[in-house]
Each structure stands twice: as structure tokens, then as C-alpha cells.
């Protein structure tokens, strides 16, 4: 048993060294406050993210990796747009849009036909968060606050057939599906602080993957389904971590005295893009994660 653990330890050190040896490189250099990167197309040529365009406006943008060109993702939309998410085939987009005073709508758009559906704000203050598509692209899971808690909900891409998937206690957020659609990861405070869990698509069989007194948030299943990347504050500030899909082999990918957050997978499952705060500037960085460890 001791030998076996030792081997795991050696492998862990080797694997960690491989991943940490990879250098991240910037994809943007403007330094403006930004978050929520997500790949748009299945080939991974284009990336969406949200940037502080003006003091009053968080705007969704489109970045082309080949030439670094950045243009507005939704040029006609003049208000805040948050957390763009895309179906795996790149034909549908979901995002959260500011509509009124502390109220937001969940919007689903099909490309290229321009079909648009929305889940409008409910009465009073209303906040949607973290939309994500099921692998077949037919449903959107999202986080919604109501009845003293933040639940994981689901609708079809026309905004109908609303269901509660993960209810309280506490806050549940950041749903992310495995590619086979058999489970999804999410963050929840059901045991006190934010930890990462997985559940069946109907919300059953909730299983906890992390356990640490500091926050573990924003899980993202790799496109090949083998790993989950997430953000953790366990080392004193936010860093990017990766673990196997069953929660084993957690490893830190970044080591930056400032904040690293909002990791998303490239469709090749070997690279991630994340937001790194460096010298007080916020930019997107590209990092090779490498192959999955044994």
C-alpha cells in the first residue's frame, strides 16, 4: 500500500511538473477588466469573453485566435451582456442580459437564422447566472436565485419546459456538462462554503468532488470528459486547478500572486483559456494543460 501511494505521489509530482512547466501566453493585452471566456465554434478558432467596455458597460466580445482580432459579439446590443455560452456545434448561444434595475433576462439565440428566445426577468430584482448548453444543444441549464436560495434550473432553448434541477440548501451555480450528457458538474454551498459536485441531468445522485474550507468554484468539464478544471482559493488567492472527472488528482495549474480565474477548455481538451490578473491588469491567457495523467 505504501509503495502504491508512493507511486501515485511520484506520478503526481511528475504530472504537476509537466503542467506547471507549460507557460501561459496572453491572448489580449489591453488589461481591461474582463471575464467569462468561452469557445464559440467546435474547432476552437473563436472565443467569446466579456470586457469592461465603458464604466457602465460590460460587453460581450469575439476574439479570433489566428490573428487576435477582437470585435463585438453582438454589435447591436447596447447594454450589459454576461457569460456567453455556446452549444457544442456553435449554432446556439445563451447569455444573460441586463434589462432593468437589478433585473436580467436569459437570452438564447440560434445562428445563422437569427432565432431568438428569452426568459424575461421576473418581477422585482432578478438575476440569472451561468447558462450552459446540454451536449445535444437542446436545453440550457442555468443558475437562478429565488426562495432564499440559488438553484440550478433548466429550460429548452426556446425558453420553455422550465424545471428545477438542483434546489437548496444554499447557492448552486456554474453547471457544466460532461460530453456524454450523463452528468454535470456544478458549485454549491450546500455544505457551507462553495465546493464542486456532480449530479445526473435530472439533479439526482449528487456527489461531492472537493472538500476545502476555501472556495472551489466554476467547474468546467473538459470536452473529452476526462477532467474538470476549476478555480480555487485554497492557496490563499484564486488559482486554476484541474482534477480527474471523479474528483481525484487535483493539481494546481497556475501559480500567480494575483488572481487567475474563469478557465474554459479549448475543444481539443489539452488547452485552457483563463483570465489572469497580472500587475493589476486583466487579460486572457492561453495555457497548455497537456494530456490527462494516468
Amino acid at each position: 500500500m505504501r509503495v502504491a501511494l508512493g507511486c501515485v505521489g511520484v506520478l503526481g509530482i511528475w504530472w504537476s511538473a509537466v503542467t506547471l512547466a507549460a507557460e501561459s501566453r496572453p491572448l489580449t493585452t489591453d488589461g481591461r477588466f474582463k471575464d467569462a471566456p468561452a469557445f464559440i465554434d467546435p474547432a476552437g478558432h473563436e472565443l467569446a469573453f466579456v470586457v469592461q467596455e465603458t464604466p457602465q458597460w460590460m460587453r460581450a466580445m469575439r476574439l479570433t485566435l489566428a490573428d487576435g482580432a477582437v470585435v463585438a459579439l453582438n454589435p447591436e446590443w447596447p447594454k450589459n451582456e454576461f457569460e456567453p455560452a455556446f452549444s457544442r456545434d456553435g449554432t446556439w448561444m445563451a447569455s444573460v442580459q441586463s434589462r432593468g434595475n437589478l433585473s436580467m433576462a436569459l437570452v438564447m439565440r440560434g445562428f445563422p437564422q437569427g432565432r431568438e428566445f428569452e426568459l424575461p426577468p421576473e418581477g422585482g430584482f432578478c438575476g440569472f447566472r451561468s447558462p450552459t448548453f446540454t451536449p445535444d444543444g437542446k436545453h440550457v441549464y442555468y443558475s437562478f436565485a429565488d426562495r432564499d436560495r440559488q438553484a440550478i434550473m433548466a429550460v429548452n432553448r426556446q425558453g420553455g419546459d422550465k424545471r428545477t434541477i438542483i434546489d437548496g440548501p444554499g447557492h448552486a451555480n456554474w453547471p457544466s456538462f460532461s460530453p456524454d450528457g450523463r452528468q454535470f458538474a456544478f458549485g454549491s454551498t450546500r455544505h457551507g462554503n462553495y465546493e464542486i459536485y456532480v449530479a445526473q441531468p435530472d439533479g439526482s445522485e449528487v456527489r461531492r468532488l472537493t472538500e476545502h474550507p476555501r472556495q472551489d468554484i466554476r467547474p468546467r468539464f473538459s470536452p473529452d470528459g476526462k477532467r474538470i478544471v476549476f478555480t480555487s482559493g485554497r492557496d490563499g488567492n484564486y488559482e486554476i486547478y484541474v482534477m480527474h472527472a471523479d474528483g481525484s488528482h487535483p493539481r494546481r495549474l497556475t501559480n500567480n500572486p494575483e488572481r487567475d480565474d474563469y478557465a474554459c477548455w479549448h475543444p481539443d481538451s489539452r488547452h485552457i483559456v483563463y483570465v489572469s490578473e497580472r500587475d493589476g491588469r486583466y487579460d486572457l491567457y492561453w495555457l497548455e494543460v497537456g494530456d490527462v495523467s494516468p
Binding site: 457602465q56 441586463s98 434595475n101 433585473s103 432578478c126 436565485a145 451555480n173
Partner: peptide
Amino acid sequence: VTPNTDFGWDTHVLNFD
């Protein structure tokens, strides 16, 4: 989070985000 405002501390929604 309100259109044309600049992200104050009034978090009636999404305080924990």
C-alpha cells in the same frame, strides 16, 4: 447590475457572485 450604471455595491441580487 443595471443598464447604464457603473456597478455599485447595491447587491439586492447576485450579492454572492
